[in-house]
Nucleic acid binder design. Structure first.
Lengths: 205, 205
DNA sequence: ATGTGCTGAATGAACGTTCATTCTCGGAAT
DNA sequence: ATTCCGAGAATGAACGTTCATTCAGCACAT
């Protein structure tokens, strides 16, 4: 039983490598715009071999989403593991909003559009956003001392808004540095206010 | 000279009709996903004739953007023309955030993605967002009594954030009605707070 | 007859996907 | 030490489809 397991593990590791190589090409040309030939070339292999790792184009998008999700999962694990989760959450969000990652924005824009268009991708993307909101609400529960269920009832909108803001910030096109930094600052202030509201609402209610 | 002008005018009117017919098909299949055959069928005409109105796919996207922009222009004209611009602006934004127009969200997602990918579309989209922000800043100048130039310096980020929030709200996927209305309410509260900040900042400084 | 507006079949390129084939190479047999 | 084997990695040509774009020809008004 070790042989097949090892094989799958090796293949999975390779898939992750391929996803990293392919990501840029996908972001640049879009879901329908990037051909399998393009993607195979980006991965440094032939078309046929490429199909051994991803049986379809949609599978690549799903792979990219899962990869992003597992990164975010790790981030939230760090947040939850820290002694001051709220501060770490704030810092993490600040970093994400301030970093000028055009590539991430491009691919998120593609995924957002594809999610609204193709139901199979929409389902995966929806699940991802739900899980992120779930992590965020878990942090809220931890901060406020409320139960997870209570936090889900009270703070779902806040969690969704924050995710939405981070996504929207990443999808913003390139601008003059000053304009951009003013906007980033305002977005961060908005996020901070929303977090303040979560804390305050818990103290009151 | 009247003949060509009339022809162009008639052709422009027809183009607008076609854009309305085509919009839905474009939103459903995306920029690369929608074929010229699809679009011609949606417009109720032959492929060849369709090319007489739009010589390329990018031209259609530009047309859609211009059409949206002129609608928004009219909306802002109404805002500026009213005796209480701030109240009308608030009401207009509330309406836009609450209306569940999945079609608009889909096409905005497509345009956002295409804008990040194709520079020619990005330029047009950027110009559109700049103009919208410009209208909003004009409203801010009117409300606060500041000069247009001063409003541009002070409130560009606020204007951009509000546009961003409205766009993001439209691009949100379908959800349970309660979740959705909670989110809409929070987004509106965030917009209102941003507008409050504009007013307050003007009183202070 | 002449001009005009429109059609939809034709064209060649490019698409996603498949598959017959070749290459690579670690270890079993000699 | 040499040969051979087989399994999985990799190839790229081929398939049927669909794409954007063009244009010869039709109907109809003048």
């Amino acid at each position: 039983m070790t042989a097949p397991a090892a094989l799958t593990a090796a293949s999975d590791a390779r898939s992750v490598e391929i996803l990293d190589l392919v990501r840029h090409a996908f972001a640049e040309k879009g879901f329908d715009g990037a051909s399998m030939q393009d993607l195979a070339r980006a991965a440094g292999m032939s078309v046929g071999n490429f199909y051994r790792y991803f049986p379809s184009k949609a599978a690549i998008v799903e792979g990219l989403i899962h990869r992003d999700l597992s990164e975010i999962e790790a981030t939230f694990a760090a947040v939850m593991g820290s002694p001051d989760p709220l501060a770490v959450l704030r810092a993490t969000l600040a970093e994400r909003v301030n970093e000028d990652c055009a590539a991430d924005g491009q691919i998120w824009a593609e995924i957002t559009a594809a999610a609204l268009r193709k139901p199979e991708i929409g389902a995966v993307a929806q699940k991802m956003e739900d899980e992120i909101a779930g992590y965020m609400m878990a942090v809220f529960a931890r901060i406020t001392g409320l139960s997870l269920a209570e936090a889900h009832i009270r703070f779902r909108a806040q969690a969704t808004l924050i995710v939405m803001l981070v996504k929207a910030a990443a999808m913003q096109p390139a601008q003059e540095p000053e304009t951009r930094s003013n906007l980033s600052a305002l977005i961060l202030r908005t996020i901070d206010r929303t977090l303040d509201e979560v804390v305050a609402s818990a103290l009151k209610g």
